[in-house]
């Protein structure tokens, strides 16, 4: 099934589901609403527990307000639910302990994740928050693949990693911000050292 044909839809464009199974309604933090099948929801441990706890009937789903997911926006949530619908019914993968982990990115997932890094970043946050194990696996594998064949300097640029010097400077700045007297004390110490004093106190 292609990404475009995945059954997740925004509510304003929604057609009435053909299947008789229950479709839950979710709302993103920018008020986009989605209908997601019960089976697809099982891919997310967080949402699955939530709907189980709510114990909604078919009428509740239609009559009560959509379940709000307040820290994920509509664009990201659409990707998440497209992924869940495509992979519904699949077993949740169990870690086999291999290191590095062997994760293959299926064609559908690769196309779904053919997005800019900003959205990929949000997708990973969403997969982590909603506890969607396999989506987290494949999205993190995509990030891991960015490291392939790169030198340490290139990796610092790709992953926006501060150098040791930058980390040290940030640490010093944080310490100084925490204790405004620290800089004064340090300067005083340096001054005394320059003057050849043996004892600071």
């Amino acid at each position: 099934m292609s990404v475009e044909n995945a059954p997740v839809v925004d509510v304003d464009e929604a057609a009435i589901p053909v299947e008789k199974k229950m479709y839950y309604r979710f709302e993103s933090n920018d008020k986009k609403e989605f209908r997601v099948s019960e089976l697809a929801i099982q891919q997310s441990e967080t949402l699955n527990r939530l709907v189980e706890a709510m114990g909604y009937t078919s009428e509740d789903v239609e009559n009560k307000p959509a379940i709000a997911i307040e820290n994920i926006d509509g664009k990201t949530l659409k990707l998440v639910f497209q992924w869940c619908e495509h992979h519904k019914g699949e077993a949740i993968p169990v870690d086999d302990g291999s290191v590095p982990k062997i994760v293959e990115i299926p064609e559908f997932d690769a196309k779904l994740m053919d997005i800019d890094n900003g959205l990929l970043f949000k997708l990973i946050w969403a997969a982590d928050y909603l506890n969607i194990v396999q989506l987290l696996n494949v999205s993190c594998k995509k990030v891991a693949n960015m490291a392939q064949g790169k030198t340490p300097a290139q990796l610092r640029r790709v992953y926006l990693l501060p150098s040791d010097e930058e980390d040290e400077a940030a640490k010093r700045a944080a310490q100084e911000a925490q204790d405004p007297r620290a800089r004064e004390v340090e300067e005083e110490f340096e001054e005394r050292k320059r003057q050849g004093g043996n004892s600071f106190f």
């Binding site: 590095p100 490291a147 392939q148 790169k150 990693l161």
Partner: peptide, 16 residues
């Protein structure tokens, strides 16, 4: 999920 060779280069990128 990162291959050992790449993770070693990543470790060399910074102490943190």
């Amino acid at each position: 999920s990162t291959d050992k060779s790449d993770v070693l280069n990543l470790a060399l990128a910074s102490r943190k």
